[in-house]
Structure formats: C-alpha cells, structure tokens
Amino acid sequence: MSSLILGIESSCDETGVALVRLPDGGAVPQLLSHALHSQIDMHRAYGGVVPELASRDHIRRVLPLTEHVLKESGTTLQDVDVVAFTRGPGLAGALLVGAGVACALGAALDRPVLGVHHLEGHLLSPFLSEDPPEFPFIALLVSGGHTQLMRVDGVGDYAILGETIDDAAGEAFDKSAKLMGLPYPGGPELSRLAEGGDPEAFKLPRPLLHSGDLDFSFAGLKTAVLTQAKKLGDDLEARKADLAASTQAAIVDVLVRKTLTALKDTGMRRVVVAGGVGANKLLRAQLNAACAKRQIRVHYPELHLCTDNGAMIAMAAAMRLQAGREQAEKTYAFDVKPRWPLDSLK
C-alpha cells in the first residue's frame, strides 16, 4: 500500500509545502502537488533576508499553503501518513516554524514525523524531474550558502570531494550584484543583465582553478569586482552589463572546470546539478556542451524546483524511507540544526 508524505520547507525565505506519494515496490516517488511562497518582495526593502521577518512570514503562510496542496491533490490531512520537515541547515527561527508545525500536525493526526536535511533535499530534487538520474553520480550543489562537489553512491551515501573555503557561488553572484548597485535578490538580476554584456570585457580571476584539488573560493573574485567597479567610476553604469557578464563567466568557468575534473578523477559518467544556481542559463549551457563531448549525462531539477521548496523535502523523506535509511517516528519533541554537514548523514 502506498504512503502519502507531506513535506514542509522553511529554512530561509521561501515557505514550501508539498505532497508526495511513496509507492510500494521501489518505484520512484510521485509528486502530487506543491505550493510555494517567496518572501523576496518583503526582504527587498532591506537588501537581504531579515531572519525575524522571515520567521513571522513562515507562520502566516504554512497552513494556507498546506490547505492548498491538500485541495489540489484531492486529499485530506487524514490521508497523510508521514509529515516531513526541514530540520537544517538554515536560519534557526525559520527552521523552528516548520518543525513546530510539522510536529504539531503529527501529534494531532497521530502520524510519525521526519526531519530532513535541506541539502539532501536539493541533492535528490532531480528525481522529481521527467529525466531522473540513476546512482551513482557526481553532484554539484550550488546555492547561496553552499558550493560542494560530492560523490553520491546512493541515498545517504555521500562523500564530499571539494567545497568552498569562503563564499559560495550564490554569494559571489549576490555580493557582486550588490557592488554593482543591482537590486535584491542580486544573483538573478546579475544573470539577466549579463545576457546583454561581453563576458571577455574584463579579465577577472578564476580562484583555485588550477589548485589541483576540488575546492572552491569566490571571495577573491568579489574583491576583484569591487576593484573594477571603483576603476570604472562614473562609467560603471554604461559598462555594468559587461562587468556582470565577465563576473558570471568567471564563476561558471570555475564550476564547470572543477566538475569536469571530479568526473575525470572518479570515472563517473553522470552528474547532477542542484541548488538555486543550478537554474543559471550559462552554467547549464556550458556544462551541457562540455559533458556532451565526453558522453556524460547531466541531470537538473525542473527550473521551478531549483529554489527551496517543499517538494524536495517530501521527496528526500520518501527516498530515505524507501531506502531504509530512516524510520519516521511518533516523537514530537523537536530540535533543529542550523549547521548540519551533509556528509554526516547515514
């Protein structure tokens, strides 16, 4: 008999709720419905995420989103078999909202609950796509807070090959955009502006490109963007698209080259790209082209599932249960993990 898993995501500035069906017999879990509310408009006035405001908005949104998901899927709360939530990493206050609501629902319904790792949700989100991957594969996790290359041999079987030693790729996009005077959220704004610029206009550094390992560093690139912006002075506005294109090219170049090195070092023939930066058009185009030459398969989440969402949390919970990596329990005393290394999972 199949099971229905309700997933709740509240780690930062998106409130997501989704319902996934876990079928018997080892078939890939099926997404029935999902709903998402972004807080971008609210935080734009402050130039970044305000944790207290984020937490308060999650409280307002999570139950209406849950009602929407249930109605759209033609189910009721009584049909839910497991309630999953993001346990970490993320903003502590925001995580507590999702954890509290999930455990309250579990207790009220007498259903088990399951805390999920946010990055594992991103990592497994391509299994929601029309072209799901197969294990094993190399994973490039790229978001505002994380940039990691991992070897993935199965659910819960993760080995970090390299990671950022300072700013993540998403931070490099966002901070560079802020230095150019672009509005929040900066990363997508920079990418849009870059479409009309010359990626070779400015010679920006590619940190650790030839380091011999698979680690990343983007803080130096941010400093180089600041230096170039100051040099341009009053000409910055006229050259902003070129600077944006050059910045994006530097970030993408490093991500692609390191990913190809990881594939070569491990002998893997499949790569998964997940996280918010995975929606970047240039990254997809360059990685697809490079992997096509090497006959390597590339998998991504659907574009609307690249950002934080409840579907990836419900999916990760379903896959952990299916793989026997986890048991959902009727334990409603909860905690959260704002810092939680992905490779610590079993």
Rank of each mutant, 00 (worst) to 15 (best):
A290C: 03
G310L: 06
L32Y: 09
A35T: 02
L226M: 13
E200W: 04
L345G: 00
V277I: 15
L123I: 11
V273H: 05
A219L: 02
T266Y: 08
A35K: 12
D215A: 08
L236G: 09
K264R: 12
L31V: 09
A274W: 11
A107F: 11
V256F: 12
G115E: 08
P29V: 08
G187C: 11
T75V: 07
G212M: 10
Q148T: 14
R60K: 15
M180G: 08
S176F: 08
V155I: 14
S211Q: 06
Y158G: 00
S2D: 15
V101P: 02
V80L: 08
K346G: 10
A168N: 09
D13C: 03
I5H: 05
D153P: 09
L209G: 05
A292K: 14
E329S: 13
T66K: 09
L128R: 03
T227L: 09
A18T: 12
R257Q: 15
V82L: 09
S246C: 15
L114W: 00
E302H: 06
E302Q: 09
G187P: 10
L6A: 11
S217W: 01
P301Q: 03
G48Q: 04
H299Q: 01
A54W: 04
L105E: 04
R320V: 03
Q322E: 12
V28T: 15
K258L: 05
P188I: 10
I138Y: 06
V336S: 03
T15E: 11
P185E: 14
R111A: 12
D131R: 10
D157M: 08
Y158I: 14
D24C: 11
M180E: 08
G196S: 15
G276D: 08
V272L: 07
G115N: 14
E326H: 06
G233T: 12
P133W: 02
A84T: 11
R61D: 10
P126G: 00
R325C: 13
L77T: 04
K203L: 10
E52K: 02
R56A: 13
Q228M: 14
A229P: 12
